[in-house]
Design a protein around this nucleic acid. Sequence first.
DNA 1: TGATGCATGTAATCCGTTACATGATTCA
DNA 2: TGAATCATGTAACGGATTACATGCATCA
Lengths: 178, 178
Amino acid sequence: MNVRTLCLGILSTGEATGYEIKKDIEEGLFSHFIDASFGSIYPALTQLAGEGLVTVRAEEQSGKPDKKVYAITEKGRASLARAISVVPGRDKYKSEFLFQMLLQQYMTPEMMRAAIDKQQSDLEDDLARIRECRCSEQPHAGARFVADYGEAVVSAALAVLKDKKAELLRNATPQAAE
Amino acid sequence: MNVRTLCLGILSTGEATGYEIKKDIEEGLFSHFIDASFGSIYPALTQLAGEGLVTVRAEEQSGKPDKKVYAITEKGRASLARAISVVPGRDKYKSEFLFQMLLQQYMTPEMMRAAIDKQQSDLEDDLARIRECRCSEQPHAGARFVADYGEAVVSAALAVLKDKKAELLRNATPQAAE
DNA sequence: TGATGCATGTAATCCGTTACATGATTCA
DNA sequence: TGAATCATGTAACGGATTACATGCATCA
């Protein structure tokens, strides 16, 4: 799945500017399983408009660049439906944190602590964000499911982390890391 | 974190060929939070050898290309220690499946079922793999933690999925998908 | 007989990130 | 005064995937 389809998906829930799409990706329900930067969103939107999958409407603003509000077209909806009508690819999960934990013996206890604390605060952030989404929206079945799924996964991670934190630090080898 | 560091990390647990490293990434504990293909592993290994971070030893074989066994050097261990002595980047999770669930209304009920079944079998695979790792190795503290973490996360996902599956399918809009 | 596993490697290509460029407004 | 928010966009660069090339052995 690429940024094109992602933009189409977000626009299927209502019109938005590139800037708002980015915010949605960072703060909305999408945030915990998708990523995209301006450098990919803006070109994707231009391309989509060129193909008639979305329309653009410029709104003048003083001081700032014109706001470009994008809206999905029927052709866009059809294209979106086609794009998601495939058996989904396997989930991909990348974690530097877990890699580090696997290589504990190369880390100093201070680094261990820093890494664990960082991970914990990241997870707490995630959890807060998910719960916020659930409150702020009147969610449809899909959104509710995704929020439940996300909450369950993040909570489970957090529980293990809190549970094993002390043990992990106790085991940290003080002589490590060259 | 890049393929270089990943290779160094795997080689820190014992010597291996490029082919074995790939297998380790696919089947070992690494598999649920890291990815890499031959196209990136082989060049990385060549580069690492050029810099003296690993040594190579060629083993002749009949029929097949010579097996190149790589082993990490002291310099390599130092480099690995340096590479992982940073506050870890945020975990990244990509899921086409969750994206699809969020856009339910564009999917046919058949696609919904296929997607859910696929996700379930993927998760069951993951769980089996993690449990296998735990048995096959005499794991050190780090490996045990990673296995616990992975098991908790995947189990939680699986539980939600099983729990909500029926509801998700019941809600599937029969007229959807263009 | 045809797929799968073993075994290494290169080149084209893609997709995306990072950094840069611009600039007003608002909040601390 | 300096950071953050709003707002769009381009260009360089990087990093990895995919496909290709080669070829034997084994298993079904």
